[in-house]
Design a protein around this nucleic acid. Sequence first.
DNA 1: AGGCGATCCTGAGGGC
DNA 2: TGCCCTCAGGATCGCC
Length: 278
Amino acid sequence: MPELPEVETVRRTLKPHLVGVVIRGVELRRPDVCRAFSSAGRRVRPSPALLLAGATIRALERRGKHLAVLARDGRALDIHLGMSGSLLLNPATDPPHAHVRWSLSRGSLVFADPRRFGGIWAFPSLDALRTSRWTALGPDALGARANDLAPWLASRRPLKTLLLDQARLAGVGNIYADEALFRCGLNPLRPGASLRPGDLAALTAAIRTTLARAIAARGSSIRSYRDGLGVPGEFQARHMVYGRSGQPCRSCRTTIESRVVTGRTTAWCPTCQPADSG
DNA sequence: AGGCGATCCTGAGGGC
DNA sequence: TGCCCTCAGGATCGCC
């Protein structure tokens, strides 16, 4: 479920409640959603200590769709919400599939993930996290620059595929790829190599604007997404193409088309995003 | 290189 | 009511 705007919203909603807080204990109800590493980089068995038991939380950071929880003593967690994951502060009752629960000096934090495509990666240092889990991530999409997209001009892959590639640009998923392409009028099936330099600038701006507006609306709640306090987002009401296949374009009334591209349902307006324009 | 399908999972929703 | 099928905000792996 969560792409960059949702993860950023979780980060922002949790931050004021978590920074400076002490983690009293960690309950690993499903240890298999956790992967832990030693300072030598070796895979080790996850334990409460590796999942920040006893730590004071120093900061929450985000890169793409990854959320990092950093402790004052250096320990670091990388949390990925996958398709159905959530991080909830002080839930009244535990949500279904609550796999990890942190007891805090004030309250508690729960990681739940029904489909278990997400998970928690524990590292002894932020450096270890950055040089392993985050090393293959491209620049964060929220600050995308035209230069980041320049290599796309040499690719024959469709724009949709390029946007989903986290190694090129980190944070864009299925919703915001389609929404950003609509915003700049580019057809998702066009190869990167068909773009002109001006298109790169327009696409870069569209990515940044789409993500920023989605964050301002606190993300998109299609079915299950909630922020760190359990509140749904509101950006889904403003989707122009995602989930609107067969409905009239909100700009020109043309019927929205859809097709599977790289395994993901892709929606676009054939009039606003013509296949041959360029 | 890169494209494709299968795979990891559970749950919601539609059709019958 | 129940069963079966399809689909879902992600990412990885093996195979051509």
